[in-house]
Structures are given as C-alpha cells and as structure tokens.
Amino acid sequence: MKFSITLFAILSVAFMTTSCVEYHPYDTRYDGEKDVNRLNIARIESACAGKRTIKFAVISDTQRWYDETEEAVKALNRRNDIDFVMHTGDLADFGMKNEFVRQHDILNRLRVPYVVIIGNHDCLATGQFIYKEMFGDFNFAFTAGDVRFICLNTNALEFDHTESVPNFEFIEDEFENFPENASKSVIAMHAKPYTEQFDNGVARLFQAHVKAFPGLQFCVNGHGHTYHEDDLFGDGVIYYECENVAKRSYLLFTITEDGYEEEKVEF
C-alpha cells in the first residue's frame, strides 16, 4: 500500500511537471493564436485612427533572454502613453517552435498591441514556417494615425534566393498604394543595409526606394545588439538600431506633427 502511494505520488508529480509531448524540436505543430500581426494591426489601426501624435516602443533580439523579455514587458506595461510595441526580430535563437511559443506567451502580456518583424534567427530550420503561421507575412505594413509603418524582411542570407529579400515588389506596391490618410512613413527591418545578412548588392537601390516614401521619418532595425544612430548613406535618413533585450533597454519614438523624438529607455 505504501509502495503504491509513493509510486502514485512520484508519477503524479512527474506528470504535473510536463505540459505536453514533443514530436520534434523542429516540428511545426502549433494550435495557438495565429496571424498575430494582422490581429494586432487591426487593433493598432482602430486605436490610433485620427491621432496626430503616435508614440511607440521598439524592442529587439529577445532570443533566449526570456527573463529580460519579461522585464521589458513589465517595464512597457508600466507606461500608459504608448500606442504599440514593435519587435524588430529574433524571437527565437535556434528557430525551434517552443522558442516562438514562449516568446509569444510573454509578448501577449503586453497591454498594448505589438507587431513582430522576422529576424535571421527566426528563419533557421523550420522557424520561418512557424513565424509565418504564428505572425503572418514576412513583409507587412500598417497605418497608425497618419504614419505608415513598412516592415520588411531583410534577412537575405537566410533565404538563399528562395524569396525576394528585400522584396522590391512589395516595397513598390506599398509606394504606389500609399494610403491617403497617411502623410508620414517609417521603415522597420531586422538587419540594416551593409550588415552581413543584407543583400548589399542592392543596398543603394533599397535606399533609393526607402527615401522615396512620403514624409519618411527614420528607419529602425535590430540585429546588431548595440545602440546605433547612423546616417548610413549620408543622405539624412537615420537608421536607429535597438539593443538586444539583454542590455535592458528599449527605444521610444514619438512622432508628432512637427517631427519626431527618439529616446533610449533603460529598465
């Protein structure tokens, strides 16, 4: 009797500590929330409609830093002045499904909607398929107030010509169908031009496309894990690079009718 009770106790504890089975770390079996970017964009667009001032935070490169990501979410939740949060890529470190699931669980605790741009680590192995299922298209755009945000996949090294990276067709379509209610634009990406991930043969062509967008404010990126404020092409377009979350900081942008303000906030 004692034996059976002990056994039962051991087994029960063992079963409580597991949450499910895993067919393979790289399986794409996912039943959770899908198309997160599209759902959150709908929230952002409706909440910001008609606003003349847009305030948003940028976090980046949260891979395998779950503690710090949680702290970032808590720090952002303490604010009540931001409209949305932008994650400029690298949720997963190794492209494993559970890394995406864990990060999604943490980011879902944000009080404000968020969007996630694909990073090079998110493309590894079956990661890109999970990103697509969980967050949606690699290139997407949305309008918050009067600002058009164009979010691009720039991880050319990962796709080996299986995708157009950067996708000029998407960029041109965005340019041609620029919404009437928007008068400004912000370009966001994971890897900026002249990094090893970017297709640097088209860096200038990319910049020419970027510069053509109406009321271009600035570009924002991640990938480098260090804070940068660079005029990469010497043409006045500033690329702001957000630190990785382990450095416990986020970028805060306020776009007003007169221009924009940028601030690096530590937490």
């Binding site: 949450s19 996912y30 039943d31 959770g32 999604h104 669980d105 879902n108 605790r109």
Partner: peptide
C-alpha cells in the same frame, strides 16, 4: 500564463 492551446493539451 500559458497560451490556451498549451493549457488544453
């Protein structure tokens, strides 16, 4: 907080 699918499974 776990995602709902994880809780169900």
């Amino acid at each position: 907080r776990k995602s709902s699918f994880k809780q169900g499974v």
